[in-house]
Design a protein around this nucleic acid. Structure first.
Lengths: 219, 219, 219, 219
DNA sequence: AATGAATGAGTCTTCATTCAT
DNA sequence: CATGAATGAAGACTCATTCAT
């Protein structure tokens, strides 16, 4: 790691970056070493100089993606002191990252036969490193008495799921006119207050979005 | 179409069923026609007698899955008259179906190159036929004044996303001891009331799950 | 043969006609029974009801083609009493047939592995039945003293070869504006002047060239 | 192109040579990549390392054949100064080449679906590079007053056609006892007397087509 | 560090052919 | 006479991977 040439490191990064995009488009099974070579600008042999396997590449791509997301989320969490604003910043960061880089770990995981062990470990790491910060924010909210006692892990999972839903749908339907802020608002509001009528949405600094003016209206 | 022999129909169904499981495990690109032949009990050639392509098979599998889910969700929606109970029934049906049959359409969609058109259409159909019933339930709740005015479509998408999150995580981590009811309770409660402290969880017939005793506690 | 149903005969003919065109386009190896079924309007199984093999079909197509050509050539030969006019009629008939029906026997013959025996026999039949009439015309010309003593079979072969050359070239280059009459005129003239008695065969048995008068000209 | 390894070049040549023979025997559609691999001594994958397609291989084989024939014909044309002897040398070279290497371009061309464009171009090249030298010889004869004014291109086409006829027939009938010289003599004699100036075109009822106004004139 | 030639098992798909109906 | 479901070998082509240079 430490004694890597600069060129060697650059080549590795080129491979990982190209692999990321290819996996994102075609999945793991659909990733071709030939295409990867072409996309990364290296010869096929050279790739095997830097990585053991296709498997190895996949694992490294996932790890790199996790790190990137973690970094962004951590940065977002540190952007404010109030837990609600932290949450909003995290949600925004996560949503944007998913749209731009499309972290693969939750999407094309199933098709990895023969590396369930490593993947499982990666997912645990993901859970720990990525979901933990969000969980901590919620726990802070709980500590401040503004969040009712809930199962934090499940809540975080739910929150992330909501976001994924939008990312996926809009990725597939190619509707580019996504109102990002609207989605973030909706998600946060729903997460914080649910849909019940009498959830007294008192004194929050949330935009009083009535939920009407969002995204694509199909009347 | 209508004048299909019974045997021909049975063969087709066998292929679709086997394909469903294989795609679920290995994704679309990872689906091997050789394995499909072995799993379905037919010869390779016979499969091509019933379907045009691997693509064709994939599309039919997706369509079939959508129909199955729609059917179950519709049945669930008809099981009660109160919108909250309808919602709970739908959520349970959807969650169970996802775990058992694992509808593929939202999971392994990206790796489908060359059939974006058809997939897009399928997703729209999925949206219409599957998400509509859920939306109607919410609208009924709104009509009864028990649901605040929200963007219904987005809410439904969010709800479904929460469920997917759990399905995915537990599928990957292979933690079989999932407390299904706990997840359903959590999801419904979160969806209905959010996490805010002062969301007065008034006289609903929801199990007064304090959120503490759920799932697997990792201390 | 004699106790064939009308429908059966029609089916057979349909297969042969379709096969003719397909073989002409794709050759013998490129003839697909599936396509043949589709083109002939019969089911695959039905074809095997009428013919033993793909091989069998090919052989029948060739035989049928030979018969058709023979018939036309015979008719042409009977159209006149003068051998030169007979020859012209034959040449025209042969040329037109080749362009329209494109007799296969001399074109895609090589790729028939495993039926060399039968093909050889067919070619002999072709030679006998088709080239014989032309030979007879030449022999009549010789008998009348208007054709010098040549090797008749070779001459016929040469004549046919000239025609094929044009057919092939124009078929490939797709130059549709072929002046058919011009080609026939050219061929007949070249052929006739070559064999005419009174082509003053000035005692040279060929390359006894009068090389004296060679003046090196720039092209 | 120019910076090819020797080994790579050797492999390519091996493939082309093997492909030539296989295509000659079985035609294009009948050429099996598996057999080609076995015949060329390379693995299937290796062939695809050097060539894009089966199509690509075919095209290269044709091009190579054309070059070989052109080379031989050019050499033959340069062997003498007298046009008749040049013609004889060319005819002999062409005939021998056809029997030994069996240039494919005029034989198995029809079964090439999807590459009509390239084939058409190849045929034009063939025409230009191969038929041109022969045409020039004839033109020299005309310039010397020993050849009557004929349509040169058509004459060349006819000459080549005569030769093909013999090649084909003897190839099919496997009659190995071909008297090569006899065929060459016959062909030259037939052709020469056909075009000789002093073939007193007396009282024939042939249309006095001067041979000028034919087909497509490429001046 | 980097290359590209080489490999053979693998891919999806089509093949000619059979047979119960 | 006709069908279409069924087959397994073969089709062209790609795969991930190795290795001498």
């Amino acid at each position: 790691m430490a004694d890597e040439t600069n060129e060697a490191f650059a080549s590795k990064q080129a491979v990982l970056e190209a692999a990321h995009h290819l996996i994102r488009q075609h999945g793991y099974a659909g990733l071709s070493m030939r295409e990867l070579a072409r996309a990364s600008g290296l010869a096929k042999g050279t790739i095997y100089h830097h990585f053991q396997d296709k498997r190895d590449i996949y694992l490294h791509v996932l790890e790199r993606d996790i790190q990137i997301v973690c970094q962004h989320v951590a940065t977002a969490a540190a952007s404010s002191e109030h837990w609600k604003e932290q949450l909003r910043a995290i949600v925004r960061a996560y949503f944007q990252l998913q749209r731009e880089r499309c972290v693969l770990i939750l999407a094309s995981l199933r098709e990895a036969v023969g590396m369930e062990q490593q993947l499982c470990q990666l997912v645990r790491q993901y859970r720990k490193e990525l979901l933990k910060p969000i969980a901590q924010v919620l726990e802070r909210g709980m500590a401040q008495g503004e969040v009712r006692p809930i199962h934090v892990e499940m809540a975080v999972l739910s929150l992330v799921g909501m976001l994924h839903s939008f990312v996926l749908h809009h990725m597939i339907l190619q509707e580019l006119e996504v109102d990002e802020e609207a989605i973030i608002d909706h998600t946060l509001q729903l997460f914080l207050y649910g849909i019940a009528q009498n959830s007294t949405s008192n004194g929050t600094n949330l935009p009083a979005s009535s939920g009407q003016s969002v995204v694509d209206q199909h009347p």
